[in-house]
Deep mutational scan, measured.
Amino acid sequence: QVALSRTQVCGILREELFQGDAFHQSDTHIFIIMGASGDLAKKKIYPTIWWLFRDGLLPENTFIVGYARSRLTVADIRKQSEPFFKATPEEKLKLEDFFARNSYVAGQYDDAASYQRLNSHMNALHLGSQANRLFYLALPPTVYEAVTKNIHESCMSQIGWNRIIVEKPFGRDLQSSDRLSNHISSLFREDQIYRIDHYLGKEMVQNLMVLRFANRIFGPIWNRDNIACVILTFKEPFGTEGRGGYFDEFGIIRDVMQNHLLQMLCLVAMEKPASTNSDDVRDEKVKVLKCISEVQANNVVLGQYVGNPDGEGEATKGYLDDPTVPRGSTTATFAAVVLYVENERWDGVPFILRCGKALNERKAEVRLQFHDVAGDIFHQQCKRNELVIRVQPNEAVYTKMMTKKPGMFFNPEESELDLTYGNRYKNVKLPDAYERLILDVFCGSQMHFVRSDELREAWRIFTPLLHQIELEKPKPIPYIYGSRGPTEADELMKRVGFQYEGTYKWVNPHKL
C-alpha cells in the first residue's frame, strides 16, 4: 500500500502544474464570482478556492472578487462561507491571508454602469489591468444573457486571457439551449467557454479513460460480442427537503440524466481518441451522441416518491408533501431510460440510465454486464461477469466473477477481482471535483468540460421526450421513500436483457 498525506498529494500536483506551459504561476489572475451571495458560491466555490489557495495550487498573485446585487462586505462573505471551509486552528494565518486577497463589488446584473465599476475595481488591483480574468457564473440561467453581454462589453482583460465558467442547466430543451449557446458564442470563442459538469471532475469518471485505453485486457472485450448491457446509475437517499420548488422546474431527467449520466455513457462508449488533447476527446464523445436516436417512450419509466409510513423524519414525507412543490405536480423524481448506440461496436446493446431521489442508498456507478459463458459445464450455477466502476461513495473498480467454492467439488461461487483505489492508495485525500475543474480552467484544459456541439446532441436525444411529458403530463409511478424505485423499472431492465441475480454482496474494501 502507498500512504500519501494531503501535503504529498498537493506537492505532486504542484510539480505537475508548474512543469506545464499552460499554468502561468507568476502571472496575476483575477477570479470573479458572479452571484457571490448565492448558495453555490457559499457552499462550493469559495470553499474550493480556499482549498486550492491553502494547498498552494493557485497562481501566487490571485485575487478573488465577488459580485452580486446584495450590498455585502468581505466580512459578510466570510461569515456565510467559512463554515464550509473546514479550516483547522493551525490554518488561521493562512485564512487571514486568503481573505486579504478577497474583495466585493455590489451591482445589478443588467446595468452597464455596475460592470464599469467592477472593471475599475479590477484595474485598481495590483497589475489588475493586465491580469488573466476568470469569470464564474454562479447564477440562474435567466440572467446569463445580460451578464455575459455586460462582461464582454465592460470587463474583459485587454492583455491577459479571459475565460468564463457556465453552470448547468444549459437551457431547458434543445431550442433554449441553442439560443443560449448562440448568444454566448457570439461574445466569446469556444476556447474561452467552460460549461461545467462537476461529474466530469470526479476521480473515477476520469479513471474510465485510463482503464479503457491503457489496459490491453479490456480492449478486445469492450464491444457487443461480449457486453450484454451497460447500466449507469445515480441514486440519492434523500428527497427534495424543502427545495422542491427549484427541482420541480427541471425534474430528474434535466437535473441528472441528460448531463451526468449521458457524459458517463460517452466515456464508456467512445472510441479511442487520437490523443488526450481536449478536442480529440470531445470529438469522440460527440460521435457517440450522434449514434444515439431520440428516446422512445416505451423505453422510459418515470416515478415519484411517496412517504414511507414506517419511516422516520423526512422519510415519512412524499414529494408532494414538500411545501415548495406545486400542488398535484407530476414532475418525476425517478427515471429509467434505455438508449442504444447504433454503431458497429455497440449495435443492440442497451445502455440503461437510472437516477432518482429518496432511494435506498447513495450511489453513482457504471456497471457493464457481460454475456453468459458459452457451453456451460457447471449446471447453470454460473452468474454473469460484471465490471463495476463505483464513482461514489467509496470509489472502487471491481470485476464480479466466478471462482471455485472451497471444498471437494467443482462448485462455482461469485467473488470479485478488486482493482480499488483504496487498497493501493491508503487514506489518500484526493482533490474534489470542483478543485480539479477550476484548476483545469486556470490551465486552459477543456477536456472535462462540455463543448457546444456535445451539448446540442445531448438535448436532441431528450427534448422530444421532455416535450411529450410536458404536454401529456403522465402521472409518475409512486414508489416508497427509501425503496429501490418503481418495480416497473426493474421490469424494463429485465425486458431489454439485464439479469439481476441478487445473490452477490459487494464487500467494501475500504472497511476491511
Rank of each mutant, 00 (worst) to 15 (best):
V341L: 07
Y500H: 12
A489C: 12
P464V: 06
G375N: 13
Q296K: 11
R495Q: 13
R345K: 12
C355Q: 04
K317F: 09
F370P: 00
V281Y: 13
K426E: 09
Q263H: 15
R282Q: 04
L353D: 01
E472P: 04
P273V: 00
F449L: 04
T324A: 14
A336L: 08
N308A: 13
L417K: 13
D347R: 13
Q263L: 08
M493S: 11
Q380I: 06
M270C: 10
L430Y: 13
F378C: 03
C355H: 04
L466V: 12
V397G: 04
D440V: 02
G502F: 09
Y305C: 02
P326E: 08
H448E: 12
C355V: 06
K287P: 01
K429Q: 12
Y319G: 00
V507N: 06
L320D: 15
G375P: 15
G502T: 12
Q263K: 14
K363Q: 15
I477M: 08
S452R: 07
Y305M: 01
G348C: 02
V256N: 08
R367A: 10
G482N: 06
L492Y: 03
V373N: 12
C355P: 02
N411G: 07
E435G: 12
C443L: 06
S452N: 15
G482T: 04
S445L: 13
V295E: 01
C443A: 09
T503R: 13
N259G: 15
L387H: 01
Y425R: 14
Y425N: 15
L320N: 03
G482I: 00
E361V: 12
P476M: 08
E365H: 02
V397D: 05
F442Q: 04
V391N: 13
L466Q: 12
P431E: 13
E314A: 12
S293G: 07
E457G: 02
S329M: 01
G482C: 04
C443H: 07
L417A: 13
L359S: 06
G318C: 10
F410C: 06
G348E: 02
H448F: 15
P323F: 15
P393Y: 01
Q304W: 00
T316W: 05
H260N: 15
K494R: 13
T276H: 04
Y481S: 08
W346E: 02
P464K: 09
Y319E: 00
A335T: 05
L353A: 03
D279W: 07
F498E: 15
Y421P: 14
F378S: 02
G375I: 06
V397Q: 05
F449T: 04
Q296P: 08
D490K: 13
V349Q: 01
K287L: 04
K285A: 13
A274Y: 08
N385H: 13
G311L: 11
K363L: 10
A336Q: 11
K405S: 13
K287N: 12
G485A: 02
V496E: 12
K357A: 08
M408S: 14
I352P: 02
S275G: 07
R484W: 12
T333F: 02
D283N: 07
G407T: 12
W506I: 14
C443E: 10
R384L: 03
K290V: 02
D322K: 06
V349M: 03
C291T: 10
Q499A: 13
T463A: 13
A332F: 01
A335W: 01
V288G: 01
G311C: 09
E501Q: 10
S483F: 03
E342Y: 05
I377A: 02
Y434L: 04
P478E: 07
N423R: 05
N308W: 09
S415Q: 15
D322I: 09
Y398L: 13
Q304M: 03
E284K: 13
I477L: 11
R367M: 08
H260E: 15
L289M: 03
D322M: 08
E314Y: 12
P509Y: 12
S415W: 08
R436V: 08
C266I: 04
S452K: 03
Y319Q: 00
P350F: 01
L465R: 02
C266F: 02
K511P: 13
T503I: 14
R384A: 15
E344M: 08
G407H: 04
E472K: 08
V306P: 02
R436Q: 15
G303K: 00
D376C: 11
S445H: 12
N299H: 14
K494G: 08
F409A: 13
A269I: 03
L455D: 04
A297D: 12
A396M: 15
L339N: 00
Q446Y: 06
M402A: 05
F442R: 00
N508I: 15
E416P: 12
R390Y: 06
E344R: 11
K405T: 15
M447T: 03
N423D: 11
A315Q: 11
Q258V: 15
L368E: 01
L320P: 10
A269S: 11
F409L: 15
E342W: 06
E365P: 01
G444T: 02
L437F: 10
G348W: 00
M270S: 04
Q468V: 08
G422W: 10
T403N: 11
K317W: 09
K383L: 08
E472H: 09
L261D: 01
D322N: 12
H371T: 07
H371Q: 13
K400Q: 13
E454P: 01
R282P: 03
T316F: 08
I389S: 04
P323Y: 07
T463G: 15
G482Q: 05
C291A: 09
V301D: 01
D376L: 13
V301F: 02
T463M: 11
M257V: 12
R456G: 09
